[in-house]
Amino acid sequence: MSSDEITPMERVLTALSHKEPDRVPFFLLLTTQGSKEFNISIEEYFSNPEMVAKAQIRMQQRYGHDCYYPFYYASLELEAWGGNSVFYPDAAPNSGRPIIRDPGDITSLESPDVFGSPQLQKLLKTTSLIKEYTGEDIPIIGVVMSPFALPTMQMGFDHYFDLIYEEPDKFEELMRVNEKFCVQWANAQLESGATAICYFDPVSSSTIIPPELYRKTGFKVAKRTISKIKGPTATHMASGRCLPIIEDIAETGTSIICTSVLEDLAEVKDACKGKLSVMGNLNGIEMRHWSPQETGDKVKEAIQKAASGGGYILSDNHGEIPYTVPSDVLLNISESLRKWGQYPG
């Protein structure tokens, strides 16, 4: 980096203060892709926190994006609760069998201690290694599953819907336990060097539950939880819609909303004006076979819709780029961003 260039941290902070930096910041949210750096299995890769840190640094150097993403995979949290993950050769691990088999189990459920979990310690180690390397130059994005989203893994989506609709007392009980864990986990990542926390809250999305139910459930949980996280947060809908609840999301105290390819980026940006910054919304599934031309078109379109005036970070729409997306596509995104994302646009 030449001395007259601003750092990714400065670029991101300028954009988040709704001003235009030198160019549009972009986050490539790469997780499993890191295993390719060492030509090893995804399972082996995530067993080694030093390797994950090195891969994050190498990938950032190659693609030039504006963050590190030490997030491992969603079900890592479930492992801390006594659950397990199922590993695949070519995809992010999936959560194994639910740990709550019956709503009655919730009464005896206890929040695990983050510092007593070897699984979570690995991620904290990765975060601190990256922090040691980068200092304040490049933002490090930590991740938590929201207390409202975690039950999809703890008990399965269908049983969780049954709980929300049919057992409100048990639902509240579960939220209290999950909130305690989420706050401790988020703050532990911040203490290890994370700059901000991405609060994954897809069940709150209007794709998954209606806005009126969100206001009675996920909204209240987010408001309580985010107020106790000692750093900035971005709320991620993991491909779900957010437009009908933008005002409410802003009230939870979060700074950024990450939206879906199902929504028009310009409409989302407009609805967020003065309240939230926007992140999104490249289609990670389609990205697997994008040509250089398509990549350029998609990046250009997103920038044209949302970048004016700052308050925008280009990223995928799911919060994780699939393992099967080729490196060439990621390089093309990076090049296109530099071509089309210069300010003033």
């Binding site: 269908d158 819907f161 929300i164 609709y165 209007s206 794709t207 998954i208 539950i209 209606p210 139910l213 819609r241 199902l262």
Partner: peptide, 11 residues
């Protein structure tokens, strides 16, 4: 059409 949520379809 995105007019209702998945939970409503499920129920």
């Amino acid at each position: 059409l995105g007019q209702i949520a998945l939970s409503q379809e499920y129920m």
